[in-house]
């Protein structure tokens, strides 16, 4: 496992601490044969999935950490363990110096959780009604509620949404309203599971700017999961990469690039029947005039890349984006094994 610096003892100012945490699930297995159906009646076939395998890490208060990994890597499981929704098979978890399992109700007063694919808003009520409900359930003092409401209304630009029914909001608006609601009780630690999922560019930008602001100005610790490297690099300073239930990398994005290279995907859309004749890296796919290349910007700087592309005849569109997490992790494995 690669680590920025090996920690021998945990500092006292941590927000999250996981020590040798293992979490497994069992999955039922069955095929469609009659024999299998009968066999499963007597002895069901099960497969053990190791979501987290002896995982240890800590996050200091005030950090903004990206918790990244491919789908099924164990990101959401970690979030649920941190918020006391699941119990680990073994290991210790401490969140804001509390046990999520034993002190759940106290912890929830200081913790904010948001799952991108779920909403905490009341569906058939205006957004402000959900906020009021939260005020009572979280027992938020009037003054703090008013202050936070003003802050989130201003920063997330949700003023016009407050009187709108939750079910009538677009996905981006709903996410902003959910985020605002989550912040009403001034959480010290925020866990965000895929908050940018399905958001358009503008909504994503608003959310990222807001999160950076509350992290820098209010010192709120933020842990955000995503499988989109672009989003994560925009937001966080430190990245924890998880793969197959293990921490594959813990450090800064620059350090990650030093190991894996600055992996980038370039998609070039061409006019009919034209092919981009440039040395840009490895051609990954071509389909209906759209060519996708794999490029290491450490070897071919962006200036040189754009220079090459400007010489190409018949370019209709260009898109440059970070390589997917799966490729970054593959790079890490290559680095470990020296292949």
């Amino acid at each position: 496992m690669l680590k920025k610096d090996q920690i021998d003892m945990y500092p006292t100012d941590f927000a999250v601490k996981l020590s040798k945490v293992t979490k497994t699930f069992t999955q039922w297995q069955r095929d469609n044969t009659g024999q299998s159906l009968i066999r499963n009646l007597i002895k069901p076939e099960k497969r053990t999935i190791v979501a987290l395998n002896d995982v240890s890490f800590h996050i200091r208060k005030g950090e903004f950490v990206a918790y990244a990994g491919p789908n099924g890597a164990g990101k959401s499981t970690t979030m649920k363990l941190l918020s006391g929704m699941l119990l680990p098979n073994s290991g210790d978890i401490s969140v804001l110096s509390m046990s999520p399992q034993k002190q759940r109700t106290t912890l929830m007063q200081r913790l904010g959780i948001l799952f991108g694919n779920r909403t905490e808003l009341w569906w058939d009520h205006p957004v402000i009604q959900s906020f009021e409900w939260k005020k009572v359930v979280w027992d938020i003092p009037d003054q703090i509620y008013r202050q936070n409401l003003d802050m989130v209304t201003d920063l997330l630009d949700i003023g016009p949404l407050l009187k709108t029914f939750a079910r009538e909001l677009s996905l981006g608006q709903r996410m902003r309203a959910d985020l605002a609601m989550m912040l009403l009780h001034s959480p010290e630690l925020i866990l965000l599971d895929e908050p940018t999922l399905g958001l358009d560019v503008v909504a994503k930008r608003q959310m990222i700017d807001f999160l950076k602001k509350i992290n820098q100005e209010n010192g709120v610790t933020i842990v955000v999961t995503s499988h989109d490297m672009d989003d994560l690099e925009e937001m966080a300073e430190r990245i924890l990469m998880i793969s197959d239930g293990k921490i594959a990398f813990d450090g800064s994005f620059q350090e990650l690039r030093n190991i894996t290279g600055n992996l980038t995907r370039v998609v070039v859309a061409m006019e009919d029947s034209l092919v981009p004749q440039v040395k840009m890296g490895k051609l990954l796919s071509s389909d209906k005039g759209v060519y996708e290349y794999d490029i290491d910007l450490a070897q071919l700087p962006i200036k040189a890349l754009l220079g090459q592309l400007s010489q190409v005849e018949g370019v209709r569109d260009i898109e440059i984006k970070k390589a997917p997490i799966e490729q970054v992790i593959a790079g890490l494995y290559r680095d470990w094994t020296g292949i």
């Binding site: 699930f25 069992t26 929704m85 119990l87 779920r118 009341w122 569906w123 058939d124």
Partner: peptide, 16 residues
């Protein structure tokens, strides 16, 4: 439930 988790989530009927 807290040991095994739930492999199912449906949003309907939760908040009216």
């Amino acid at each position: 439930y807290v040991k095994k988790g739930s492999n199912r989530y449906v949003p309907y009927g939760f908040r009216r």
